[in-house]
């Protein structure tokens, strides 16, 4: 399988602090990969670097969009909106919805970079504007139905139950038509029932929408059942990589999570 995201030697320094230290990671077409590690390991910093929120100090972030006939592009330091335009969309660890917009409008924002109505179109409502707007509404509604939020479609995002807000973030990211979805702790704060539903949802997105997924998650049960491959980070470095069974048995991973066994 070819990789659609290839990160090599990614380094990020904040002043004297090295948050990411020569990190290598890749995501292959159609896979679910997970990035795990103790708190403060640099997982979210990694997400911020590859989505353009931070400009990494060193290394390469190369994308190879599946629709681009194998064309490669280095995307270090480009703006977040350009990253999204190229097909990588993310969610946030602490939910960042547009609180005072309806569920539908939140998802419609995701369509922004795939549509083109300008100021003149907005004011004069040309035929093309109306058609584009209608297509946007239909597309967004279809996603909302798929994610299972149809009953909330006109509710304000802030009035949604917690689990639904998390799902709305995923719906919004999916509306940007990505080839890779980056989920930052999608199950944080969810109850076991909601987590099980999320498991099914993520699998469904991969299988039915053909979107690869890279997720950061602390819920080990979810990570182990979902992931094809797992990357483990500690102190900004990658300490292990492999399938779920390998990772479970890896002594360095156990050490990073539980500390060293003094009797050993």
């Amino acid at each position: 399988m070819e990789s659609i995201l290839e990160v090599t030697g990614l380094t990020m320094d904040f002043g004297g602090l090295r948050a990411l230290d020569h990190l290598d990671l890749d995501v292959k077409k159609g896979e679910i990969a997970a990035l795990i590690g103790p708190n403060g390991a640099g997982k979210t910093t990694f997400f911020n670097c590859i989505t353009g929120i931070y400009n990494p100090t060193g290394g390469d972030i190369i994308i190879r969009p599946p629709k681009g006939q194998g064309r490669k592009e280095r995307i270090n330091g480009i703006k977040p909106n350009h990253v999204t335009e190229r097909g990588m969309a993310r969610t946030f660890q602490n939910i960042r919805l547009f609180q005072n917009m309806s569920v539908l409008e939140n998802v419609m924002i995701g369509r922004h970079c795939r549509t083109r109505t300008g100021v003149a179109g907005a004011m004069l409502r040309f035929r093309s504007t109306i058609e584009e707007e209608q297509a946007m509404v239909d597309y967004s509604y279809a996603i909302i139905e798929k994610i299972g939020l149809a009953r909330f479609v006109n509710d304000l995002a802030k009035n949604l139950p917690y689990g639904a807000q998390r799902r709305l973030e995923i719906a919004r990211a999916m509306a940007t038509d990505p080839f890779l979805l980056l989920l930052d702790e999608p199950a944080a704060g969810m109850n076991p029932q909601e987590t099980r539903e999320l498991d099914g949802l993520i699998n469904k997105i991969r299988d039915e929408e053909n979107i690869a997924i890279l997720l950061i998650e602390h819920d080990m049960k979810l990570v182990m059942s979902l992931s094809d491959r797992i990357f483990v980070m500690d102190y900004g470095r990658k300490i292990a990589q492999g399938g779920p069974d390998e990772i479970k048995r890896d002594p360095t991973v156990i050490k990073a999570y539980l500390g060293e066994d003094p009797d050993a």
Partner: peptide
């Protein structure tokens, strides 16, 4: 509502 999320969703 949220400048960072807005950029991350592809808005210039």
């Amino acid at each position: 509502e949220d400048e960072i999320a807005c950029q991350a969703m592809g808005i210039d």
